[in-house]
């Protein structure tokens, strides 16, 4: 029972942060592509901005991994 709850929690951690990161990235990505069509040399800067929110999902993943492997063990 408890293991099941841990698994659900881990899933939520990854899933919800994934939605959050995606939501944030969709706006940044659209703007970055727009900027790049005007000036292709902005790729690097565009990429930096684009991937910034994606750290959220990494945090979610860390939480999930810790939940499963530390709490679940």
């Amino acid at each position: 029972m408890e293991l099941g709850l841990i698994a659900i929690g881990a899933g939520l951690a990854v899933g919800l942060t994934g939605i959050g990161a995606g939501w944030a990235e969709k706006d940044v990505g659209a703007a970055a592509v727009g900027a790049m069509t005007e000036d292709a040399s902005l790729f690097g800067k565009g990429m930096i901005l684009m991937v910034l929110p994606e750290t959220i999902v990494i945090f979610g993943l860390v939480v999930a991994i810790l939940a499963v492997f530390v709490l679940g063990a």
Partner: peptide
Amino acid sequence: VGNILSYTRLAA
């Protein structure tokens, strides 16, 4: 701390 944890993507 976030920057450091960001490197966990290497394992992930």
